[in-house]
């Protein structure tokens, strides 16, 4: 029997039969559900068209009382959105600053040491993140393990739990491996001779880092930044536990509306977050493309 290349209609048929289940699945369970977010966001409880959910996001206000007793009227969801963005950006920058040197050290170690260190970095990722985050709560509590340790060293205790710093610690802890892994895989493939050549051409170590290693590792940095930024902007558990529920993030807002069965408003928040993320990624791509062209 002749199959394969020689009989093109037959080939096209097998192609279709192989792709049909996945294509159907992808349309029904990936594309259509996204349309449902837009549909719910733009309708009311009777499924008639409204912009109310969207305008509510931008205009809803609430009163917050500052520590000095002054109360202030704020735009609730814009404030939550700004806070999510701020904490996610801080966490991403911290992950990059901590993770970049780590990725470099691993990539320049011996093959066996590399494998061991990569496995060690991945082990925490396989453990339930809810329990790990909870364990951080017991470490950072005012009467927790960290302060007990500081007390032994006769150092003053720290009040971390329930602050924005605690939320950042939790995010950095949970997402650091996502930053290290892509940067490491780019650096491991880098030609070591480039570094040597740069040293030979009287570049000092800082110049080598800035002019050779950094530009070459840029693809890894970009995917690391995306992989940390996206989950940290949309998380809803870390802030509830480590922020004592005082720092509502955009993910908490969506979850709260879901629990309260306000599905249409939950969809509206999700839609706005999705559009903001797409815009941010397009912007990032634009700037990195330009930076690369400028460097050449």
């Amino acid at each position: 029997m002749m199959g394969g290349r020689s009989s093109s209609p037959r080939r096209r048929l097998t192609e279709r039969l192989l792709l049909a289940p996945y294509s159907l699945w992808a349309v029904v369970f990936i594309v259509v559900p996204l349309a449902f977010i837009a549909y719910y966001a733009l309708t009311d409880n009777n499924f008639s068209f409204t912009l109310e959910n969207i305008t509510r996001f931008f205009t809803a206000t609430s009163t917050i009382t500052a520590e000095n007793g002054q109360s202030q009227e704020v735009r609730t969801y814009l404030l939550i959105f700004a806070r999510s963005l701020k904490l996610a950006v801080i966490s991403t920058v911290v992950c990059l600053l901590i993770g970049y040197p780590m990725a470099y050290i691993i990539s320049r170690a011996g093959p066996r040491a590399q494998k061991t260190m990569i496995t060690l970095i991945m082990i925490p990722m396989w453990m339930n993140f809810l329990i790990r985050t909870y364990a951080w709560m017991t470490i950072l509590q005012d009467t927790g393990i960290l302060n007990g340790f500081l007390g032994l060293l006769r150092l003053p205790g720290l009040h971390i739990i329930g602050t924005e710093s605690a939320v950042v610690v939790g995010m950095v802890y949970d997402y650091l491996p996502y930053m290290i892994m892509p940067i490491y895989s780019v650096m491991a493939k880098m030609d070591l001779r480039l570094e040597e050549a740069s040293h030979d051409l009287v570049c000092n170590r800082l110049q080598t880092l800035w002019r050779v290693i950094l530009p070459l590792s840029m693809p890894g940095v970009i995917s690391g930044v995306t992989m940390v930024l996206i989950p940290s902007i949309s998380t809803f558990y870390i802030s509830q536990k480590l922020g004592n529920g005082r720092f509502f993030l955009i993910g908490d807002a969506i979850e709260g509306q879901y629990v309260a069965n306000n599905l249409h408003f939950a969809a509206a928040i999700a839609l706005i977050m999705m559009i903001a993320l797409l815009a941010a990624m397009a912007l990032m791509k634009h700037f990195t493309d330009r930076a690369f062209q400028g460097g050449e």
């Binding site: 259509v32 449902f36 719910y40 949309s234």
Partner: peptide, 27 residues
């Protein structure tokens, strides 16, 4: 087209994937 659709669940935050499927199932 297939590559783009395949990338969607990996790029989208989990909360969006979860909410979108939930809305469709509930509807």
């Amino acid at each position: 087209a297939l590559d783009t659709v395949t990338n969607i669940p990996m790029i989208n935050p989990d909360i969006i994937t979860g909410i979108s499927l939930m809305l469709m199932f509930v509807f």
